[in-house]
């Protein structure tokens, strides 16, 4: 079974998500995931690559992203048009629910896709901007874990910004 070497010719790799869904991706797409590129180079990518931290929902999005970027970059269009195109795509792509965005961000970090990681971080930043602390805590479901003393200390530490 494991020697399904026919696949090698087409240079297709199989990625398996946390919930067991298998995705077939071409090499040009797979190598954008730095983690996977390393596995491929180390010849550890057969029969499939298990990604324990990424659900199928997110992995599908990640693959869509990498596919689009791979196609645009190799499409032979001029750099400026490709840039424009990617920008539009990225904007559209980031138009997702906050939870998905968080998951994309941690997936991009885990899979080591620099451009996607930066894109998600930038988007998160623009979502956080102008919200109050309480809103941000709620939005991301995090709690205030400061002790009273620490809280005072942080306020003091950054007091200059609020004068």
């Amino acid at each position: 079974m494991s020697s399904s070497t026919e696949l090698t010719e087409k240079k297709v790799f199989l990625l398996k998500s946390l919930d067991g869904v298998i995705f077939e991706v071409e090499e040009s797409v797979a190598v954008q995931l730095e983690v996977i590129r390393e596995l491929i180079e180390g010849d550890c990518a057969r029969p499939f690559i298990s990604l324990y931290n990424v659900t199928s929902e997110i992995l599908a999005l990640v693959i869509e992203y990498c596919k689009h970027h791979a196609e645009t970059c190799s499409g032979g269009t001029s750099a400026t048009i490709a840039d424009e195109d990617l920008k539009t795509f990225d904007n559209e792509f980031m138009n997702v629910d906050e939870n998905i965005l968080l998951e994309l961000c941690s997936a991009a970090d885990y899979l080591d896709i620099k451009s996607l990681f930066e894109l998600t971080c930038r988007t998160l930043a623009s979502l956080i901007k102008d919200r109050t602390i309480i809103e941000v805590r709620k939005m991301f479901n995090v709690e205030n874990d400061f002790s009273v003393v620490e809280e005072k200390a942080v306020r003091k530490e950054f007091a200059w910004a609020f004068k």
């Binding site: 941690s106 970090d109 971080c121």
Partner: peptide
């Protein structure tokens, strides 16, 4: 999310925003 990611998110904001968000949690 790892600290490096949080820090990268913060790096896109201006200093008073960063200072405000430092008060979210540890």
């Amino acid at each position: 999310i790892p600290e490096s990611c949080m820090a990268l998110v913060l790096s896109y904001l201006d200093p008073p925003e960063i200072a405000k968000l430092a008060r979210i949690n540890r």
